[in-house]
Design a protein around this nucleic acid. Sequence first.
DNA 1: CGCGTTTTGTTCTCACGTTCACAAACTCCT
DNA 2: AGGAGTTTGTGAACGTGAGAACAAAACGCG
Lengths: 218, 218
Amino acid sequence: MARLPEYLRALTSLAEAGISVCSSEELAAAVNVNSAKLRKDLSYLGSYGTRGVGYDVDYLRYQIAREIGLTQDWPVAIVGIGNLGHALANYSGFGSRGFRVAALLDAAPERCEESVAGIPVRSFDDLDAVLAETPIAIGVIATPAGAAQGVADRLVAAGITSILNFAPTTLAVPAGVSVRKVDLSVELQILAYHEQRRAGAEELRGAAIAAAGEEQSA
Amino acid sequence: MARLPEYLRALTSLAEAGISVCSSEELAAAVNVNSAKLRKDLSYLGSYGTRGVGYDVDYLRYQIAREIGLTQDWPVAIVGIGNLGHALANYSGFGSRGFRVAALLDAAPERCEESVAGIPVRSFDDLDAVLAETPIAIGVIATPAGAAQGVADRLVAAGITSILNFAPTTLAVPAGVSVRKVDLSVELQILAYHEQRRAGAEELRGAAIAAAGEEQSA
DNA sequence: CGCGTTTTGTTCTCACGTTCACAAACTCCT
DNA sequence: AGGAGTTTGTGAACGTGAGAACAAAACGCG
Ligand SMILES: NC(=O)c1ccc[n+]([C@@H]2O[C@H](COP(=O)([O-])OP(=O)(O)OC[C@H]3O[C@@H](n4cnc5c(N)ncnc54)[C@H](O)[C@@H]3O)[C@@H](O)[C@H]2O)c1
Ligand SMILES: NC(=O)c1ccc[n+]([C@@H]2O[C@H](COP(=O)([O-])OP(=O)(O)OC[C@H]3O[C@@H](n4cnc5c(N)ncnc54)[C@H](O)[C@@H]3O)[C@@H](O)[C@H]2O)c1
């Protein structure tokens, strides 16, 4: 389920606030979901609550982390060290959640001379060599859209089985490879859509009020 | 619907490739969805196809853009010009899709002296003044998680009605305000989950094969 | 020890989104 | 003009996920 990471983060917040036990209602409120849905999600992992009391925050945190697979460290490779790639490489939120930037790759030779956040940028042609040094299962694509499919193909060929794609393209990958995409402009367009509908509704209200006014005056 | 932007992008690709007419099957293949679903989505906007022929790429493109609200320009304000904020401000993909970075805001005074991509960084305290100069409906939050809720509250108070949140927190906003969130670590955790399940399945297969071997040898 | 209170785990129902399947409509060819 | 072939638009079945409601279990207290 895609909600488990949200629960996990909310639980971490609670733990940091010194709270050791919480009810499904409280946790559900923190993630903006229905409490019944939350309980159903958690019961899917097993019975980790005590009736009449609630859930032990630390225990539940561990159980969710185990379910997701965060008890181990996941090395990640970032491909395309441009604007976005730099920001990702510098991002400290990775490490604190069980992910480790294990390699930075770029096709441009001049990029390969620098280091970002203490990690050297290597040539994308050395992909196989890099993966031979450290086994990496997750690849992040931060290249221009035109290069994304080619990069994905090579990552898959090199044995990567999970891809996080920031380029605005839908990637085609063989079965058995997971792809998630993060698309800024799609999100903005969805916001624009709602924004426009709000504006349209306002106009309609305005027109209705105007019409009512006319009616009254007639 | 959240799929319209995907269709739009696929159509733009087709148009750039010089294709002027396409069938629902082709377009559906380009976005990895069922063709019936695509047709139903499109029929929701109206009957913009010709039976036996397909859809006119440019015409459909315009209709979807109109439905989403991309016939107008959407000014966007970015709050928090750190690692991520810089990358966003430098991102050219905004403008080409109907969005314009209209303002950059940050709380740190030293940030406010620089310009990013030709746009001056202003103090977050000047929010109201900035919005008075240009009306902005969409705000992007790229501040640390701890500051996100406070920033969101002030954005809403200043009249922003759509928020794109990059900080790993769930924001509480009044009804009538849209929030979308982009969370890197959630995406990575979902990938890790699938990755782990794959590893688990392999182990199970291995165990089954071992068990079968034992059985045979017994 | 029993009763009331609280909160989980689960069952049931319902609504939504997805998919199949087919009729209507359009083009092209004869 | 008519028929063959294609492709849209949509009605109906299907499956999945969400929410409400309730029974089972734990705790506290008299
Ligand atoms: N910058 C942002 O804020 C932002 C936001 C959303 C989406 N994106 C998307 O992320 C991607 C990267 O954006 P960016 O602003 O960092 O672009 P960029 O041009 O700054 O960086 C792209 C990098 O990829 C490298 N590259 C190009 N082809 C490559 C290949 N075949 N193999 C390996 N590396 C290759 C380039 O050398 C460059 O360093 C784009 O697809 C963009 O649409 C960026
Ligand atoms: N860098 C990444 O690649 C990345 C990826 C995913 C998510 N994020 C998230 O995006 C957010 C920003 O990340 P970052 O790496 O750019 O952090 P950063 O520390 O580099 O930048 C944060 C910026 O926000 C400003 N700021 C702090 N409090 C503020 C306030 N109250 N009002 C206005 N501005 C304020 C700071 O001055 C700073 O410039 C974080 O929440 C992070 O978790 C970052």
